[in-house]
Design a protein around this nucleic acid. Structure first.
Lengths: 231, 231
DNA sequence: CGAATAGTGTCTGTGAGACATTATCTT
DNA sequence: AAGATAATGTCTCACAGACACTATTCG
């Protein structure tokens, strides 16, 4: 067996998902360099051994430098590798998944100037294996949303329960029973009501505003039974 | 922003788990090379760009060449990276998780000669971040076992339901209700009874032998509700 | 026959969903 | 007052676990 390391291309890519028009959308950026210069692709870049303590920090740096964004949720998705996925040769891409509310993107001028949002169900042609990567990310987010509080990362920091339910329904792609949803949110114990209310919507009873409790800002909470009991 | 790739150390490591004495155990091997030459560590090696089509095949090759093993279950666990984990410098390790019944190891002379099994709850000191890697793998296997057929990979190809239940209980570390377990296995529909029976055990009614149905040999099946309903 | 484990029938408590009812806003 | 949506109370059905009972082997 050999003892030397082959020189490999090692990058990080980020699948940044958000909710637009009640549907998951992924952030795409035009590539500044070859290969596929000018094509829409996932934001990514080389790992910088001097700057990045690990791959997660490389992903954070990519988001920060290329889009001026910081994502509270940034999780390793998977690593895609092989000889065939990049014309430059055998490559490794450590892929991270980020979730942000649309408002957080819209308020960032750099992000909106540099990037495009594409609905995950109607992706444009993408270079490399980025289509597979997005599909993997969407699947992961949908699966995890079934039994965790992950979709709260797609809301702003203040939201009503009907709004949060709409987010869950958009992510999962199916309606949720209102009573069950409220029971589940209640027993997860991660939300706290805010004194102020929300009424701007119009001719109906205003809804209570909630925010994530401090203890849940960092780690998401898991439910053992899930939200929808379809067996 | 720079345009060149830093030279990085890129390896694959394999967490091979099995069940010994009703407890999860991980396969460790003495390192043949520096750093940490002679220490017990996870089997692993460099990615070989010429031989390996992707990282999964590199992991298969490591298992084959170093241990003479082929694992039906081989799944990417996560990628561990950073400047601090390897004294040689910034490194990337794409880690795969394999599951095999103890009998499959015991029947392989090379595997037994080269390797040691350590209970995952009483690991010896391990180099690099291998302790974290094993912990991540064990957590993943336990979580996945709650709602999938994953533990069948720890059984041989023929097993009784009481045996399979014991495997689940050993992996999950808690007793399972017998009736619920059988109901769940029944509705998953992945097992088929074999004509022959099993009695060697002794002074009691013999148990029906089962095997995995053909359709389930490759992909594991998921249950929406899980096995134990502790909420 | 007794011990031991395999396998099944049945009851019950818990929880999710359906439905109905009350509450509170705007016009 | 009417209409709209928020929030909650209550009923029911399904499922997981508990328990008991039958089945089949060995000694």
């Amino acid at each position: 067996m050999r003892e030397t390391a082959d020189p490999l291309i090692c990058t990080v890519d980020v699948v940044l998902l958000t909710l637009r028009d009640d549907a998951l959308a992924v952030l795409l950026q035009r590539r500044e360099r070859e290969p596929f210069k000018g094509a829409l692709a996932l934001p990514g870049g080389y790992v910088h051994a001097q700057e990045d303590a690990d791959a997660a920090q490389a992903a954070e740096r990519v988001l920060r430098q290329k889009l001026g964004l910081v994502s509270p949720y940034l999780e390793q998705l998977a690593t895609f590798s092989g000889a065939a996925r990049d014309p430059r040769g055998w490559s490794v891409s450590i892929v991270y998944c980020a979730l942000l509310p649309l408002a957080a993107l819209a308020s960032d001028t750099k992000a909106m100037a540099e990037a495009t949002l594409a609905p995950v169900d109607r992706l444009p042609p993408l270079p490399f294996d980025h289509r597979d990567i997005v599909a993997t990310a969407v699947q992961r987010v949908r699966t995890k949303s079934q039994y965790s509080s992950l979709p709260v990362y797609l809301c702003g920091d203040r939201f009503t329960l009907p709004q949060l339910q709409a987010v869950y329904e958009a992510v999962l792609g199916e309606p949720i029973n209102k009573v069950s949803f409220r029971r589940k949110m209640d027993e997860l114990g991660m939300l706290e009501p805010i004194a102020g209310e929300m009424s701007s919507g119009g001719a109906h009873r205003p809804a209570q505003l909630y925010r994530l409790r401090k203890a849940f800002r960092q780690a998401l909470s898991l439910s053992e039974r899930g939200l929808n009991g379809r067996g």
